[in-house]
């Protein structure tokens, strides 16, 4: 029989001694990516590590380690962790932006207080990405947030992004805001179209 059974864990990696927070924080800057990865994973239970994780995220180039840093921030899940993730929304690297969005989507309660500022950001690309952060929020929270955005947002592409999210998460209370948006951008044909689709979807209308 070629199958063997080990009832111990001889093949498991030997457990490293538990490092203190200072050592783990220092390891975030280690030249060895494996050490950085392990440090980031260990710091996810230490709310005091947010500044170090934020600095490491800004400097880290390896996607796997960045992922671990973001997950650590997600596990901490407080306002500081959200603030540490938000700069990644402005990154040139699309993968980094996408990872940050996913991490922020997974912490909707902590992200909620930042939404007003994000929807008022001077950069329309940031406002577009911010609409995605609402997608995992309860419908009763997401709907007024996105409706408020639609009421004053000057950029049709941001409106379109918000409407796309509303189509999934919005309640019928969004319909007047959607109709008003379509009227405000009457000359933008694609926006009229996406508004019609969203209203159909929210109201469950049959084609």
């Amino acid at each position: 029989m070629p199958l063997i059974r080990r009832d111990d864990n001889k093949t498991a990696a030997p457990r490293e001694p538990v490092a203190d927070a200072a050592a783990l924080t220092a390891a975030l800057g280690d030249p060895d990516p494996d050490r950085r990865w392990r440090a980031a994973r260990s710091l996810g239970s230490d709310a005091g590590a947010v500044p170090a994780l934020a600095a490491a995220l800004a400097a880290e180039q390896l996607p796997q380690v960045r992922e671990a840093i973001m997950t650590a921030l997600l596990r901490i899940g407080d306002a500081g962790a959200v603030a540490a993730l938000l700069p990644s929304l402005r990154a040139q690297d699309a993968a980094l932006r996408a990872s940050a969005i996913e991490a922020l989507q997974a912490m909707p309660e902590a992200t909620l207080p930042f939404m007003t500022a994000l929807f008022a950001d001077a950069d329309s690309d940031v406002r577009i990405l911010a609409t995605e952060l609402v997608r995992n929020m309860p419908a009763e929270t997401a709907t007024p947030l996105l409706c408020d955005l639609l009421a004053h947002e000057p950029h049709p592409n941001v409106c379109a992004a918000a409407i796309d999210v509303l189509a999934e998460v919005g309640t019928p209370a969004a319909i007047p805001a959607l109709q008003a948006c379509a009227s405000r951008f009457a000359e933008v044909s694609f926006l009229r179209f996406v508004v019609a689709v969203a209203i159909d979807q929210i109201s469950g209308a049959e084609h």
Partner: peptide, 11 residues
């Protein structure tokens, strides 16, 4: 899994 658990499990 929810989003957070999925990330942790994947790691």
């Amino acid at each position: 899994f929810d989003d957070a658990s999925r990330r942790i499990a994947a790691e």
